[in-house]
């Protein structure tokens, strides 16, 4: 059976990269006695996949990994056990049973993510909220996207599903996953350059809030959190 773990990453742990977070969870599974399944062969490894790696420096309230269990666990009790074996900087929020089909893993169905962007250092111009609204109300936001092999111009506006100014912060709902993926720093850097704010005058803290799957039909988007696709387990 498959289960989905949701966790928070905060504080000093924002400096731990994705591969090391993976290693952390592999060791956590053993410390917390989670009955996780292994692949076969001479060097068996845990069956575990993360929905989307979080870059170094970012924090999150909504990270996900899917694991394969060899035996059912009690959700509440397993969360407690895992948190007892955690460190400051990682907190397990839930573990829920999910469908067994391969096409339902978090990595495959991931469609969008919410980010909260706030100023970490420096200041924005006083009228930044207006400027940001103007920036977002454009029909197109063309940027040069650099990949390893080439660079091409793309319109990122359709990949911004939702935006909102929340107090002194900005909420962004952006396309995520293997088909389309937009990083929040690209949005903010483009905003700075288009509104002629010198890039070095301000830096942002990026906080991922949630990740979503698209359960809509006939081209109509219906985003639901990855967590909501699972069910609490009781033993």
């Amino acid at each position: 059976m498959k289960a989905r773990i949701k966790f928070r990453k905060y504080g000093a742990l924002r400096f731990i990269g994705h591969l090391d977070v993976m290693r952390f969870f592999q060791k956590l599974m053993r410390r917390a006695d989670i009955p996780i399944a292994f692949t076969g062969g001479y060097s068996p490894h845990m069956i575990m996949s993360f929905a989307s790696p979080l870059g170094i420096g970012l924090t999150s309230d909504g990270e996900y990994l899917d694991i394969e269990l060899t035996a059912p666990v009690d959700s509440q009790e397993a969360v407690k056990r895992m948190n007892e074996e955690c460190v400051e900087g990682i907190e397990v929020l839930s573990i829920r049973q999910i469908q067994d089909e391969k096409k339902m893993t978090g990595m495959t169905i991931l469609a969008a993510a919410d980010y909260l962007v706030s100023v970490k250092r420096g200041t924005l111009p006083e009228n930044w909220k207006e400027r940001f609204s103007d920036f977002m109300e454009q029909k197109e936001i063309r940027v040069i996207k650099q990949t390893k092999r080439s660079e091409r111009e793309v319109d990122i506006r359709p990949l911004i599903y939702r935006w909102e100014i929340r107090g002194e912060s900005v909420l962004l709902r952006l396309a995520a996953g293997s088909a389309e993926n937009l990083k929040p720093d690209l949005v903010m850097e483009t905003f700075l350059s288009e509104s002629t704010v010198p890039e070095e005058s301000v830096s942002f803290a990026y906080h991922r809030l949630e990740m979503y799957a698209d359960m809509g039909e006939a081209g109509k988007r219906n985003l639901v959190s990855l967590e909501s696709l699972g069910q609490e387990m009781t033993v």
Binding site: G11, F15, G17, F24, V87, E88, G89, R121, S203
Partner: peptide
Amino acid sequence: MRKLALSDEILLNIEKPARYIGGEVN
């Protein structure tokens, strides 16, 4: 929460910042 000796700016611009943050298991 523990306060780090090095600022974010420093930690994000050096190799393997995890070398300097402590807070490991045990």
